[in-house]
Design a protein around this nucleic acid. Structure first.
Length: 599
RNA sequence: GCGCUCGUAGCUCAGUUGGAUAGAGCACCGGUUUCCUAAACCGGGGGUCGCAGGUUCGAAUCCCGCCGGGCGCACCA
């Protein structure tokens, strides 16, 4: 079934065409309930085009509108808004048409895949293997994973590209150090274990700074690595594998899966990139490609240096070495030519905005990317401390991502344990294993949800107290809402997978109607996230849904469910519960958050 | 100096690309439990949307100029 927004848009677009113009129906959900459920803002804009009064145009549109099956007669209000109020019967039918879920892990909650499936590359996480993952990698990993999940769910083929830093001068130092202190790994590379990558790096760096001979050795190692020296590469590979094991311990924990494609993967391609550019330069095919101060560059309009000089994208340094523009161009070539991607998303901090603007402009200027390919930089703001300062340890060092997650989980455990026993409530006692699972799920969910619930562009303050609060737009609230609904199903003794498909949905009470509308808006939220890459649209929607459910289930203003009668009504309400739970579960899944049945 | 970005309730943040009386959570004040998880729900107070202009039926949103915070401005990625 198509979303309500799509259906209304389609109808209104048709009506607009019937009055002899073309125009965007401009349908949106109404802000205030007294204006109905949806509104069209099209008439005001069209009035100018037609030289008629806005309200007249609105009336003309309404007259041509065939929409009785969806809503009550549309009302015209204000300067020319057209307000739509959906019929409960239509909502009931729409809910009923959602197929039952036989497997919650693959449930689509009635949503259809996109019609125009494409191949999408999402560049995410991308830590440097020289060190351990730190908090700076959280946002890219979590946001990228969410975006990938949503696009994949919509039916696109998604390549999750982990562009790890496994190349460059610092690896000469690390390999040289490793060869000195662990010579045995040359023969047994798979036995390498480094418990603390961070201090390993610090050791190597200290030796590098203090020992001239070692410094020289490190440089030679880089050369050997680039030359493809077998022994050097073995050690390097062993180090990278060990570092990747650390990364994947975190990815596994976060439920993030991706493809590791390090800088080294692009080595040949970077040479190819430069060869192609040299050809463009030499043939004079593109005046934008030329040498400057010994470096191979692509010159672009609109970018200047501090001194006001033209700022080019530098693709090969004057010493012949490559830089990140080289490898990023190589990623574009790989993703367009090999992966056949028509949409490429880079989930990288906002600080690099200019770099990506230049990169994209360059790729288009030299014709490597045509108009059929969409290039996007999904930039995000910084994660700050609770006080709004840069996120650092007390000593001013970087905080390891693992430590941050551990703390969140430990705090989550305390929050769950500290719940005051309430005699009126059924006591739930959890086994240690259950408790571990709850703490882990809630802790990680809190961190992810908090991150994703902010708009991408702004900085946010990492505050465990806020993200672990049971109230407000937080993971614990969402998980609790889900667990509560699941417990209703258990208590009622209903297996939703075994329901007769034709069991009617009956919407009479205001809270039932409101909940039904909210459930059916899920498709619109997912659509926006897929199009605009804004996960916070989804968190906001899920929060609204959870609130709508709480009202529906409320003692005073809601309805009875488990003990409702007659049977048909009880059934219908249980089905509303189930639909809500499925949407919550799926929505959270798209955010990369797993649910728990009890908490 | 140029560019990007942010500035919205006491605090933390939304605001669907120009729509109706600017929203939510926390905090504060008040109310709701013989009844399905009160980890909930309902109500209330609280705003010159940084400042000043402009565009138009209509601006937190778009344009111009200021103020303030953050970031970036070719051989680190």
């Amino acid at each position: 079934m198509k979303s309500i927004l799509e259906q209304l848009s389609h109808r209104v677009r048709g009506a607009i065409a019937l009055i002899g113009v073309e125009g965007d129906p401009q349908i949106q959900a109404s802000q205030d309930e007294k204006f109905g459920d949806y509104q069209s803002n099209a008439a005001m804009g069209l009035a100018k085009k037609l030289g008629r009064k806005p309200r007249e145009v609105a009336e003309a549109i309404v007259e041509k509108l065939d929409i009785d099956d969806l809503c009550e007669k549309p009302e015209i209000a204000g300067p020319g808004f057209i307000n739509f109020r959906l019929k409960p019967k239509f909502l009931a039918k729409a809910l009923q048409s959602i197929p039952l879920a036989d497997d919650l892990d693959t449930d689509r909650a009635g949503l259809l895949p996109a019609e125009n499936a494409q191949v999408v590359a999402v560049d995410l996480s991308s830590p440097n293997l020289a060190k351990e993952m730190h908090v700076g990698h959280l946002r890219s990993t979590v946001i990228g994973d969410c975006v990938a999940r949503v696009l994949e769910f919509q039916g696109h083929t998604v390549h999750r590209e982990n562009h790890v830093g496994d190349w460059g001068t610092q690896f000469g130092m690390l390999v040289a150090h490793l060869r000195r202190i662990r010579p045995e790994i040359i023969d047994r590379p798979d036995t390498l274990e480094i418990a603390d990558l961070e201090s390993f790096y610090v050791e190597a760096k200290a030796r590098f700074d203090a020992d001239e001979k070692f410094k020289e050795e490190s440089r030679e190692t880089v050369v050997a690595l680039q030359r493809g020296d077998a022994t050097t590469r073995r050690i390097w590979q062993a180090f990278c594998n060990e570092s990747l094991r650390h990364c994947h311990a975190i990815y596994d924990r976060l439920g993030v899966r991706l493809i590791d494609r390090g800088e080294s993967f692009y080595n040949d391609l970077m040479n190819e990139v430069v060869r192609r550019l040299e050809k463009l330069r030499d043939s004079g095919e593109s005046a934008a490609v030329r040498d400057s101060e010994g470096a191979l560059c692509i010159f672009l309009d609109g970018f200047t240096t501090r001194e006001g000089e033209p700022l080019p994208l530098m693709v090969r340094k004057s010493d012949g070495g490559f830089n990140y523009a080289t490898s990023d161009l190589a990623t574009i070539v790989h993703r367009v030519e090999v992966l056949k991607a028509t949409r490429i998303v880079y989930v990288v901090g906002l600080a690099q905005k200019q770099h990506f603007e230049m990169l994209f402009a360059a790729a288009r200027k030299i014709g490597w990317v045509g108009p059929e390919v969409r290039l996007e930089h999904l930039g995000f703001g910084n994660m700050l401390s609770k006080a709004g300062t840069p996120f650092k340890t007390r000593e001013g060092g970087t905080v390891k991502l693992k430590d941050l997650l551990d703390e969140a989980v430990a705090r989550a455990r305390r929050v769950v344990e500290e719940v005051e026993p309430d005699e009126a409530r059924v006591q739930r006692s959890f086994t240690p294993q259950q408790m571990d699972n709850i703490a882990e799920t809630v802790g990680l969910a809190a961190v992810k949800y908090f991150d994703l619930s902010h708009s991408m562009t702004s900085d946010y303050r990492f505050d465990l107290d806020t993200m672990l609060a049971m109230e407000g737009n937080t993971a614990p609230y969402m998980l609790y809402a889900y667990a509560r609904i699941r417990s209703i199903g258990r208590k009622a003794g209903v297996d939703f997978r075994a329901l007769p498909a034709d069991a009617p949905v009956i919407l009479e009470h205001a809270s039932e109607i409101a909940l039904a509308k909210k459930i059916l808006q899920f498709a619109d939220a997912v659509e926006v996230v897929g199009r605009e890459l804004k996960p916070n649209v989804l968190t906001d929607y899920l929060y609204d849904l959870a609130k709508a459910f709480s009202r529906f289930y409320d003692k005073r203003l809601g309805v009875r469910v488990i003990d409702a009668s007659p049977e048909a009504v009880r059934f219908s309400r249980l089905r509303l519960c189930d639909s809500t739970a499925r949407v919550l579960r799926l929505g959270l899944r798209l955010l990369g958050i797993s649910t728990i049945e009890q908490m």
